[in-house]
Design a protein around this nucleic acid. Structure first.
Length: 190
DNA sequence: ATGAAGATGAAT
DNA sequence: TTCATCTTCATC
């Protein structure tokens, strides 16, 4: 297998609308555990649905920081969700990582998730974080140094595009991207 | 100090 | 469709 290009902080210093689709097919590993990204959503600073839209707070601070860092937040009091911060220091732009196809460290993921079905291990932002062991401790960390490891997609992937999940229709945009036909998505694209 | 809502997931 | 679970932030 050809050695794949590591994604550095420079990769993320671009519009979320460019970065998000390019992340489909890329590899995400946390302490060596992870797989191929198959679903993401883009949130830009002009987006009323984005956490940063109403200004900076302690929770979303890392979203306003420089690109190439992680933004991890607590969802519904229960789950962690992982984002990659993109261009515009002082402006909140990020890509939510929603699902991946497990390829590395599957036994550990199964243990963390307390279930065996590989298809459901990382099919959703909360599930993905539980499987990879991502918590608030990862908030604000750089993405191009351990424990993170990101590898560029080997080639452009066939994209599915659709409305984002959990966003009220009035605020929504077609900024959810997926690997067309993947069975590891949190939900199918229509 | 208090309360409402939330970029979800699992069970019913 | 319901509910678990709890932090965050706006408001009082």
């Amino acid at each position: 297998m050809a050695k794949r290009v590591r994604l550095t902080r420079a990769f993320f210093d671009r519009s979320v609308h460019v970065v998000a689709p390019e992340l489909i097919g890329a590899t995400l590993l946390v302490d060596g555990v992870g797989g191929t990204i198959v679903e993401v959503e883009a949130y830009d600073h002009e987006d009323p649905a984005a956490h940063g839209f109403n200004g900076q707070t302690p929770r979303n601070a890392s979203m306003f920081g420089p690109p190439g860092h992680a933004y991890v937040y607590r969802s519904y009091g229960i789950h962690w969700c992982l984002n990659f911060v993109c261009e515009g220091e002082g402006i909140a732009n990020a890509v939510l990582i929603r699902a991946l196809e497990p390829t590395a460290g599957i036994p550990l993921m199964q243990k963390r998730r307390k279930m065996q079905d590989v298809r459901l291990l990382c099919a959703g932002p909360g599930r993905l974080c539980e499987a990879l062991g991502v918590t608030r401790a990862h908030d604000g960390l750089l993405l191009d140094v351990p424990p993170f490891r990101l590898l560029a997609r080997p080639a452009a992937a066939p994209l599915a595009v659709g409305p984002r999940i959990g966003i009220t229709k009035a605020m929504d945009k077609p900024w959810r991207y997926g690997l067309a036909g993947s069975r590891f998505l949190s939900k199918p694209f229509k």
